[in-house]
Computed example of a mutant assay.
Amino acid sequence: MGKIAVVGSINMDVVNRVERHPLPGETVSGLETAYIPGGKGANQAVAAARAGAQVLMIGAVGQDPFGGPLVEALGKAGVNTAGVLEKEGTSGMAFITVDAHGENNIILSPGANGRLSAEDMEAGLIGAAGGSGGAGLGGVLLQNEIPWETTAAAVRRARTYGAAVYLNPAPARKVEDEVLALVDVLVVNETEAAAISGLEVASREHAEAAAEWLLGRGVGEVIVTLGAAGVVYASKEGERISAPAFRVEAVDTTAAGDTFIGAYAAARDRGASVQEALRWANAAAAIAVTRPGAQSSIPSADEVNRWLENRG
C-alpha cells in the first residue's frame, strides 16, 4: 500500500433543507440549516482515509473562523493535514440546498481554494512522496474545485512519481487531450462525461460510448457513475464492467460521488480487483446517501464490510 495524496478543495458546506427547490424568483421556507465540513477534495480524502488508506491532504483554508474547524475535521477523520496551507481571506464555501427527495443543488464560493497554486501543490506532493524519488506515493486524487492550472500541473507531477492519477473533473469542464493521456483513472458522471466528450450521455449505452471515446484519448480506465443505475467501467486493456448500484432510500446525495471515488481508490490501493473495488465503492456511496451532510455521511471500512455482509 502506498500513500494517497489528495490535491483539492476544502469547503464549509452551508446546508439548507427544503421541501422542494425554489423556482427562479421564488422564495421558499427552509426546514433547517447546518454547517458541515465538505469540499470535493476534502470529502475524497476523508472517504479514502475511512476506507483504510494512508491519506495526505494538499489544499488551503482561509483565515476566517471556518479554517481551523475544517482542518480539525480532516484530522479527526484520519487525514494527514501537513499539506493544508492557510491563505489570506475566506475559506471555500458551498451553499447547498437539499429537497425532501435528497436531491441537491450547490453554489460554490472558492475562497482559499482559488488561491492554491502549482507551487503549493508541488511542495505538498514532494512531502507526500517522501522526497524527489516518489517511492512512498501510490496515488493522487484530483478534482476541479481549485484552479485548473494547479490540477493539470498535479497530473503531470504525479506521473513523474509513478503514482496512479485519479481525476474527477467536477464541476464539469473540457479537459485537454494532453492531460487526459496522463490520467490513469477518470471518474465522471453523465454531465461530466458529456462535457469532456461532447457526446450526449443520457443512457447506459451513451455512457459506454463516452467511455470508449475517452479511452481513445489515452485515459487508462474510465468510470462513468450513473446514480441509481450503477456504474460503467472500461479500461484500455479491454475490460468492460457494468456494476449495479445498491437500492437504498436516499436522504442526501451530497458527497456520494466523492465517497465512491475515495473508497474506490483506497480499495485498489490495498490490492482489490476492479470488480471488488467497484462493489465496495458502490456500497460506501449507498451508505452515504442514507445520511445527511458531506463528510458526516461517509462510512468507515468496518461499516461498509458489515453492510456488505448483511447483503450476502
Rank of each mutant, 00 (worst) to 15 (best):
Trp213Phe: 14
Lys40Leu: 12
Leu137Phe: 06
Ala283Trp: 01
Ala158Tyr: 02
Asp120Trp: 01
Arg204Cys: 02
Leu167Pro: 08
Ser203Asp: 11
Lys40Glu: 11
Ser297Asp: 01
Gly227Cys: 07
Met1Ser: 15
His101Gln: 13
Gly218Leu: 01
Leu108Pro: 00
Tyr233Trp: 15
Gly59Trp: 08
Gln44Arg: 07
Ala228Val: 06
Leu182Trp: 05
Trp280Pro: 00
Leu215Glu: 07
Ala283Arg: 02
Ala250Gln: 04
Val6Cys: 00
Ala47His: 05
Gly138Pro: 04
Ala283Glu: 00
Ala195Cys: 10
Ala193Pro: 04
Arg204Ala: 11
Arg204Gly: 07
Asp64Arg: 07
Arg240Met: 05
Leu70Ala: 05
Ala243Ser: 15
Tyr264Gly: 09
Thr259Met: 10
Ser242Pro: 00
Glu32His: 11
Val155Lys: 02
Ala172Ser: 15
Gly89Lys: 00
Arg17Ser: 12
Glu237Val: 09
Ser235Phe: 02
Val251Lys: 10
Ser296His: 04
Leu182Phe: 04
Pro24Val: 03
Lys40Cys: 12
Asn113Tyr: 06
Arg279Gln: 11
Leu137Asp: 06
Gln54Asn: 15
Ala118Trp: 03
Asp99His: 03
Gly30Ala: 07
Glu237Gln: 14
Val187Met: 15
Asn105Gln: 14
Gly39Asn: 08
Val175Cys: 10
Ala255Gly: 05
Gly68Gln: 14
Thr90Phe: 09
Asp64Thr: 09
Lys87Ile: 08
Ala234Glu: 14
Pro110Glu: 09
Ala202Ile: 08
Leu31Asp: 13
Val231Leu: 15
Ala294Trp: 09
Lys40Pro: 14
Val98Gln: 10
Trp280Phe: 15
Ser29Trp: 12
Ala256Lys: 06
Met12Asp: 02
Tyr35Thr: 06
